[in-house]
């Protein structure tokens, strides 16, 4: 029973990773860049909710929506100012810029709100569920996290596969030049990708901080990196891959925390990445791409 409880909280953590990994994997698939700042957008989104809901007492749903809007604007702005000038530059330059942006967000947050951790009030109003005579307790946050993640996954898959902007995204990720020749607005599509990824980051931030209620400028960094591991695990560029990778990684992390060592759980998660790259570099659902000259 205890195992089941660890498993369920692992799936909940994994759902958060999956939401973050979606942002990574879409941006990687379409803009071919590793957006290091993604984790820090989560942090900014969580601060927005912290002030809107915790300090000003807004309705939690409105606060989350407001945070999604702020994160979307921030994500699109970052793409416009920092990444777009470097779109034709070597990938190393983009990567270093992304690290700079990630650092910038952390430092600005630290200057504005100090590095002291703030205690986040959960935005979930659901009661916990007790099963098997109190042997298994599932918190409201866990249920909401898993449900929200599944709903978003379904909608996103439908969006990408059945709408015109979704098809544009697929086309740009397949071949940017050819998509442009066919009349796809590449800049708008990339902006849209960043907007969706950042909005999902805001949701992920709300859920993450509701489950682990400590908020500081570095809150987003570690989940962001782990979510990237999840994206690689599932196969970078693949939306279902991000989902599966996220859930599996969450389970691995929680079980190793419970049964091996709390201190070493991060190390185990990262060891998974190295093993995946050794055994199947394209990830679980990734496609092998042949480079043509």
């Amino acid at each position: 029973m205890q195992f089941l409880s660890y498993l369920i909280s692992g799936i909940s953590l994994g759902s958060v990773y999956a939401l973050i990994a979606l942002g990574y994997t879409m941006v990687y698939g379409i803009a071919k860049m590793l957006n290091f700042a993604h984790g820090d957008i989560i942090m900014i989104g969580s601060y927005v909710i912290f002030f809107a809901f915790g300090s000003f007492g807004w309705n939690p749903l409105v606060a989350v929506l407001f945070s999604m809007v702020i994160c979307t604007i921030l994500g699109v702005l970052i793409e416009r100012v920092a990444y777009r000038p470097l779109r034709e530059a070597p990938s190393l330059a983009v990567l270093i810029t992304a690290i700079g942006v990630s650092y910038l967000l952390q430092q600005v947050a630290q200057l504005l709100w100090t590095s002291n951790a703030k205690s986040f009030t959960s935005v979930v109003g659901l009661q916990k569920i007790t099963l098997f005579d109190g042997q298994l307790i599932i918190s409201g946050e866990t249920i909401v996290t898993i449900l929200v993640c599944i709903v978003i996954m379904v909608f996103l898959t439908l969006f990408v596969n059945h709408t015109v902007p979704g098809h544009a995204m697929l086309a740009v990720s397949e071949d940017r030049g050819a998509a442009q020749l066919m009349g796809v607005n590449v800049n708008a599509t990339i902006s849209l990708t960043f907007a969706i990824g950042s909005a999902l980051a805001a949701v992920a931030g709300a859920l993450l901080c509701s489950t682990y209620p400590s908020l500081s400028p570095t809150t987003g960094a570690m989940p962001g990196i782990k979510a990237f591991v999840a994206a690689v695990f599932g196969g970078i560029g693949s939306i279902p891959g991000a989902f599966i990778g996220g859930i599996l990684l969450g389970i691995i992390e929680n079980l190793s925390k419970a049964y091996i060592s709390t201190q070493l759980s991060d190390a185990i998660v990262f060891a998974v990445l190295i093993v995946v790259l050794l055994v199947k570099p394209t990830g679980l659902l990734g496609k092998k791409v042949n480079v043509k000259v």
Partner: peptide
């Protein structure tokens, strides 16, 4: 952080 971004661009 600003040095990294500005130098790269």
């Amino acid at each position: 952080a600003i040095v990294l971004i500005v130098m790269m661009i």
